[in-house]
Design a protein around this nucleic acid. Structure first.
Lengths: 223, 223
DNA sequence: CCTACCGATCGGTAGG
DNA sequence: CCTACCGATCGGTAGG
């Protein structure tokens, strides 16, 4: 009779991923040792290597699971959206909520993906691109025809900048929770975007922003 | 006659700081070895320790010089500003330019300050707070009386989020330079801020955001 | 007795 | 999933 996996296998894996995400987010990936991860889990370092090939596999799994979940959210919101003009604010609301409940994983995504092997990094980056692309579409849908397709990705990245940065300084307090932040961000961005005096910028500049943003992603890049 | 320092002392120091900033920004502080810094400078590792006490002193010097320069810019722009309503957009323009010309140092400031000793980190954080405070004042000056002092720091942090994130994805192209980005960011933020339907948010929430932002800074924090 | 380094190697600890 | 280790490399410092 095959023994198969221990009944706690999945729970152990989940625990390791959670602790690793927390430590990577708090101390940085490179500054975190596998011994620290093991200790946080109440396991030996060797035990960790039973569940994950190496340190990088841990970070890759954390980042990829998170970014796939983000894409899933976008797709779901798009499918459920009946009023096209409400798509972007609802997306923002869902993303703020998603980031709030997965802050550690999100920081691993934005900061540590650069340390991964090319293959892993590219796979994650592709999912990110899809997310950005769908946000850019939602932005485009709200803008005047004259601005269609111009700087939509750049605008999406400015939006992600606000949201990503949120979780580096905001601490949910007694009165204000993450959920209340979403409408503030959405309001600021939507009004700003709609009132922008875009036509005064040279078309060449807009075109360059467009091409420059072809390689956009949610993660930090090596300059 | 006192011999004093070698004539190239200051140039060597500047070279080391520039190379270290570049490597820390590209690879992360913890992932960069002093050997790499030494090699990039064409020096022995031991020579590095002639100029700087240790690896942390390097990062501290890079971050502190940069943040002091940022404060200097804010103070100068405030002093030169004749039209109060133009203060914020001019500040944004100067900051985008400053970040563009000191991207490596800025990334060290936002990512690596958390690794410094308490004393160094606190000193740098204090200068950051002063910068954020002055931005918050510039924001406040543009808003309706009813919103005065409400969420001004939170808004400042959302602005810094956009600008900080800029340099993780934007690559100056053939046609679009950093200078052209500033009015886009300023436009988006100013219009958004002025058109925000703030009064609909509960006062309690705004108060919480205010207190939560007492510890704001430009750098990433350990959650 | 100084500043400005060099080649070599220290004690400890990393990932595996 | 443990103890017991490895090859290598880390930040930092010795003598000259």
């Amino acid at each position: 009779m095959a023994r198969g996996r221990a009944p706690q296998y999945d729970e152990q894996r989940a625990l390791i991923l959670a602790q690793a995400a927390r430590l990577f987010a708090q101390q940085g990936f490179m500054a975190t040792s596998m011994n620290q991860v093991a200790e946080a889990c109440g396991l030996s370092k060797a035990a960790l290597y039973h569940y994950f090939r190496d340190k990088f596999a841990l970070a890759a799994h954390i980042a990829e699971t998170h970014v796939r979940r983000l894409l899933e959210v976008v797709v779901q919101v798009q499918a459920d959206c009946v009023e096209p003009r409400r798509l972007l604010p609802v997306l923002i609301e869902h993303f703020v909520r998603e980031y709030a409940s997965a802050q550690h994983a999100h920081r691993v995504l934005t900061e540590d993906v650069r340390f991964l092997a090319d293959e892993d990094r590219r796979r994650i980056l592709e999912v990110e691109r899809e997310v950005v692309q769908r946000f850019a579409q939602a932005i485009d849908a709200l803008r005047p025809q004259a601005a269609a397709g111009r700087m939509d990705k750049a605008l999406a990245m400015l939006l992600f900048g606000m949201i990503n940065w949120l979780f580096t300084w905001f601490k949910p307090g007694r009165e204000l929770e993450y959920a209340q932040l979403a409408p503030i961000v959405a309001d600021l961005f939507l009004h700003g975007m709609l009132e922008m005096t875009l036509p005064t910028y040279p078309v060449a500049a807009a075109g360059a922003a467009e091409s420059a943003s072809d390689e956009l992603s949610l993660q930090r890049k090596t300059p």
